[in-house]
Computed example of a mutant assay.
Amino acid sequence: MAVLYDRLHHAHPGAPIVYLSTGAWNVAPTLTRFLGRNLYPAGPLLLTDWGPTHDRWFRNGAQHKHDSLARLAQEFPGIRWLLIGDDGQADERLYGEFAAAHPDSVRAVAIRRLTAGEAVLAGGRSSGAAVDAHVPWISAPDGAGLDDRLEELGILDNDPA
Protein backbone atom coordinates (compact mmCIF):
# COMPACT_ATOMS: atom_id res chain seq x y z
CA MET A 1 0.00 0.00 0.00
CA ALA A 2 2.89 2.37 0.69
CA VAL A 3 4.01 2.08 -2.95
CA LEU A 4 0.48 2.87 -4.13
CA TYR A 5 0.27 5.95 -1.91
CA ASP A 6 3.70 7.08 -3.09
CA ARG A 7 2.69 6.70 -6.73
CA LEU A 8 -0.50 8.66 -6.09
CA HIS A 9 1.49 11.37 -4.31
CA HIS A 10 3.87 11.72 -7.27
CA ALA A 11 1.12 11.49 -9.90
CA HIS A 12 -0.85 14.28 -8.23
CA PRO A 13 1.66 16.69 -6.67
CA GLY A 14 0.08 19.08 -4.23
CA ALA A 15 -2.98 16.89 -3.69
CA PRO A 16 -3.59 16.37 0.01
CA ILE A 17 -3.19 12.97 1.57
CA VAL A 18 -5.30 12.62 4.69
CA TYR A 19 -5.24 9.52 6.87
CA LEU A 20 -8.73 9.00 8.32
CA SER A 21 -8.90 6.28 10.94
CA THR A 22 -11.07 5.07 13.78
CA GLY A 23 -7.87 4.84 15.80
CA ALA A 24 -7.62 6.98 18.91
CA TRP A 25 -5.34 9.99 19.25
CA ASN A 26 -3.18 8.19 21.81
CA VAL A 27 -1.82 5.98 18.98
CA ALA A 28 -0.82 8.96 16.83
CA PRO A 29 2.93 8.77 17.66
CA THR A 30 3.03 5.04 16.89
CA LEU A 31 0.99 5.46 13.71
CA THR A 32 3.18 8.36 12.57
CA ARG A 33 6.32 6.26 13.10
CA PHE A 34 4.76 3.34 11.20
CA LEU A 35 3.82 5.55 8.24
CA GLY A 36 7.26 7.17 8.14
CA ARG A 37 9.22 3.93 8.48
CA ASN A 38 7.17 2.33 5.73
CA LEU A 39 7.62 5.35 3.43
CA TYR A 40 4.01 6.48 3.26
CA PRO A 41 3.68 10.10 2.12
CA ALA A 42 3.25 12.63 4.90
CA GLY A 43 -0.26 13.77 5.69
CA PRO A 44 -2.44 14.77 8.60
CA LEU A 45 -4.08 12.14 10.77
CA LEU A 46 -7.80 12.39 11.49
CA LEU A 47 -8.17 10.18 14.53
CA THR A 48 -10.86 9.94 17.17
CA ASP A 49 -10.93 10.63 20.88
CA TRP A 50 -10.68 7.64 23.17
CA GLY A 51 -13.04 6.81 26.00
CA PRO A 52 -16.63 7.35 27.00
CA THR A 53 -19.00 10.00 25.76
CA HIS A 54 -22.12 11.34 27.47
CA ASP A 55 -24.16 8.42 26.11
CA ARG A 56 -21.66 5.62 25.32
CA TRP A 57 -18.78 3.76 26.91
CA PHE A 58 -16.77 3.93 23.69
CA ARG A 59 -16.63 6.31 20.75
CA ASN A 60 -18.40 5.39 17.55
CA GLY A 61 -15.66 4.95 14.93
CA ALA A 62 -18.06 4.84 12.00
CA GLN A 63 -19.66 8.11 13.13
CA HIS A 64 -16.19 9.66 13.42
CA LYS A 65 -15.42 8.70 9.82
CA HIS A 66 -18.83 9.91 8.62
CA ASP A 67 -18.44 13.28 10.36
CA SER A 68 -14.83 13.68 9.19
CA LEU A 69 -15.73 13.00 5.55
CA ALA A 70 -18.58 15.53 5.72
CA ARG A 71 -16.20 18.08 7.22
CA LEU A 72 -13.60 17.49 4.49
CA ALA A 73 -16.25 17.99 1.80
CA GLN A 74 -17.39 21.22 3.43
CA GLU A 75 -13.92 22.66 4.11
CA PHE A 76 -12.42 21.62 0.75
CA PRO A 77 -15.29 21.89 -1.76
CA GLY A 78 -13.04 21.97 -4.83
CA ILE A 79 -11.28 18.66 -4.17
CA ARG A 80 -12.32 15.38 -5.77
CA TRP A 81 -11.24 12.72 -3.31
CA LEU A 82 -9.93 9.23 -3.97
CA LEU A 83 -11.28 7.35 -0.96
CA ILE A 84 -9.12 4.37 -0.02
CA GLY A 85 -10.28 1.91 2.61
CA ASP A 86 -10.76 -1.76 3.26
CA ASP A 87 -13.57 -4.26 3.63
CA GLY A 88 -13.25 -4.48 7.40
CA GLN A 89 -15.72 -2.57 9.53
CA ALA A 90 -17.67 0.11 7.64
CA ASP A 91 -15.52 1.78 4.96
CA GLU A 92 -17.56 0.42 2.05
CA ARG A 93 -20.86 1.63 3.47
CA LEU A 94 -19.47 4.98 4.64
CA TYR A 95 -17.64 5.73 1.41
CA GLY A 96 -20.65 4.67 -0.64
CA GLU A 97 -22.96 6.94 1.35
CA PHE A 98 -20.50 9.82 1.09
CA ALA A 99 -20.11 9.32 -2.67
CA ALA A 100 -23.89 9.21 -3.09
CA ALA A 101 -24.29 12.43 -1.11
CA HIS A 102 -21.29 14.19 -2.71
CA PRO A 103 -20.74 12.63 -6.17
CA ASP A 104 -18.87 15.71 -7.42
CA SER A 105 -16.42 15.38 -4.51
CA VAL A 106 -15.40 11.77 -5.18
CA ARG A 107 -13.13 10.72 -8.05
CA ALA A 108 -13.25 7.03 -7.10
CA VAL A 109 -13.49 4.59 -4.21
CA ALA A 110 -10.76 1.97 -3.77
CA ILE A 111 -11.30 -0.89 -1.32
CA ARG A 112 -8.54 -3.30 -0.28
CA ARG A 113 -9.87 -6.76 0.51
CA LEU A 114 -8.45 -7.93 3.82
CA THR A 115 -6.87 -11.32 4.30
CA ALA A 116 -8.67 -13.71 6.67
CA GLY A 117 -6.23 -12.84 9.48
CA GLU A 118 -6.59 -9.10 8.91
CA ALA A 119 -10.38 -9.43 8.92
CA VAL A 120 -10.24 -11.13 12.34
CA LEU A 121 -8.11 -8.28 13.72
CA ALA A 122 -10.47 -5.71 12.16
CA GLY A 123 -13.47 -7.29 13.83
CA GLY A 124 -14.81 -8.94 10.69
CA ARG A 125 -15.69 -7.92 7.18
CA SER A 126 -18.34 -5.54 6.03
CA SER A 127 -21.31 -6.84 4.10
CA GLY A 128 -19.72 -5.65 0.88
CA ALA A 129 -22.89 -3.81 -0.05
CA ALA A 130 -21.82 -0.50 -1.53
CA VAL A 131 -24.21 2.32 -2.24
CA ASP A 132 -24.65 2.96 -5.96
CA ALA A 133 -23.01 6.34 -6.06
CA HIS A 134 -22.27 6.71 -9.78
CA VAL A 135 -18.55 6.97 -9.10
CA PRO A 136 -15.90 4.40 -10.06
CA TRP A 137 -15.63 1.68 -7.45
CA ILE A 138 -12.68 -0.72 -7.41
CA SER A 139 -11.32 -3.39 -5.10
CA ALA A 140 -8.30 -5.67 -4.94
CA PRO A 141 -6.47 -7.74 -2.33
CA ASP A 142 -3.45 -5.42 -2.19
CA GLY A 143 -1.93 -2.13 -3.26
CA ALA A 144 -0.57 -3.59 -6.49
CA GLY A 145 -4.03 -4.69 -7.55
CA LEU A 146 -5.51 -1.31 -6.66
CA ASP A 147 -2.67 0.34 -8.59
CA ASP A 148 -3.61 -1.64 -11.70
CA ARG A 149 -7.26 -0.71 -11.37
CA LEU A 150 -6.42 2.98 -10.81
CA GLU A 151 -4.35 2.88 -14.00
CA GLU A 152 -7.40 1.55 -15.85
CA LEU A 153 -9.39 4.52 -14.53
CA GLY A 154 -6.69 6.97 -15.63
CA ILE A 155 -5.98 8.08 -12.06
CA LEU A 156 -2.45 6.68 -12.25
CA ASP A 157 -0.16 6.67 -15.25
CA ASN A 158 1.01 3.18 -16.23
CA ASP A 159 4.55 4.56 -16.61
CA PRO A 160 5.76 5.24 -13.05
CA ALA A 161 8.97 6.92 -14.27
Rank of each mutant, 00 (worst) to 15 (best):
Y19M: 01
I138P: 04
G14I: 01
S105C: 12
V131C: 04
V27A: 03
E92C: 12
L46T: 01
G43H: 03
T22H: 01
L39C: 10
D55Y: 09
A101S: 15
L47S: 05
G78T: 15
A108Y: 07
G78F: 04
L31K: 02
G96M: 06
P136N: 08
D132W: 07
V18Y: 08
A70R: 15
V106E: 01
A62W: 04
V135L: 07
Y40S: 01
F76V: 05
L82A: 06
R33N: 05
A129V: 14
L69N: 04
P13E: 08
W50N: 10
L20D: 01
H10S: 12
R112H: 08
L94T: 14
Y19P: 05
V106M: 06
L45Q: 13
V109A: 00
E118K: 01
L69S: 05
R80E: 14
R71F: 00
A110I: 11
W25Y: 12
R56T: 14
L72R: 00
Q74G: 05
H54P: 03
A11D: 09
A116C: 00
A100H: 10
P77F: 11
L114Q: 14
S127A: 10
A110V: 14
P136Q: 09
W25D: 11
H9F: 09
W81N: 02
H12R: 12
P103A: 06
G117F: 06
D91H: 04
P41Q: 06
A140W: 09
V27N: 01
